[in-house]
């Protein structure tokens, strides 16, 4: 009996497992594919919204081209990869006559409003090729002027292209504010939720 089971029944069961495998792949062959065909379709915004891409500056409430940044250097000094470089603005140049006038006024005991250097940075350059996206800069920014962008489509053919001028980027963003968002394909997440509901319905 054992011999029959071992030499006749077992091989048939084994061969059947091969047929079952073919059935699985055959089933998927007939189904629609699940990949998103990139240039024709792009993944839905809900998926890119949670993605932490390179950092970007947050505009101040008043002017969308000027960041909230106060050039305090917390980001640049705390960055473990040294990929942020911030340049403070210099105080505006004052003509000697003006200077003299103020000095005289001060000597008279009047209060003089000397022009201070604007707080927002003159230059904010960021090297994406070094960044490890750890978020130290974002967590340490005292005025929350930094955030992760959701840019997943960044492409470069040269390392230098990855060094970004974030101020210029902010200006571009302000300009493009009027543009409308791109059309999105139905999301994989939606499909997942749908399939999950189906599965749970089946179980019930």
């Amino acid at each position: 009996m054992n011999a029959i089971r071992k030499n006749v029944i077992q091989p048939i069961i084994d061969l059947w497992s091969l047929i079952v495998g073919l059935k699985v792949t055959g089933k998927y062959f007939c189904q629609r594919h699940v990949t998103v065909h990139y240039p024709r379709k792009i993944i839905p915004a809900e998926l890119t919204d949670t993605f932490a891409g390179h950092i970007e500056l947050i505009p101040s409430a008043k002017d969308p081209t000027i960041p909230k940044c106060i050039s305090c250097m917390m980001c640049a000094t705390n960055c473990p990869s040294n990929c942020i470089k911030v340049l403070k603005q210099k105080a505006p140049k004052v003509s000697p006559e003006q200077e003299k006038e103020w000095a005289e006024a001060e000597a008279r005991g009047e209060k003089v409003k000397r022009p201070k250097a604007p707080k927002n940075p003159a230059k904010f350059s960021y090297d994406y090729s070094l960044c490890s996206l750890c978020g130290t800069c974002i967590e340490n920014c005292p005025v929350s002027s930094l955030r992760f962008s959701h840019d997943i489509y960044i492409v470069a053919t040269d390392r230098k292209e990855l060094t970004m001028d974030l101020l210029a980027r902010l200006a571009r963003q302000a300009e493009a504010q009027a543009g409308k968002p791109a059309d999105r394909a139905p999301g994989v997440l939606e499909q997942a939720a749908e399939a999950g509901q189906e599965a749970s319905a089946k179980e019930a």
Binding site: E46, L189, A193, A195, G196, Q197, A199, S200, E203
Partner: peptide
């Protein structure tokens, strides 16, 4: 949204 997505994923993955 995350919790919902995860709750939908669990039965799906089981299936």
């Amino acid at each position: 949204k995350f919790i919902e997505g995860l709750k939908a994923f669990i039965p799906y993955f089981r299936s």
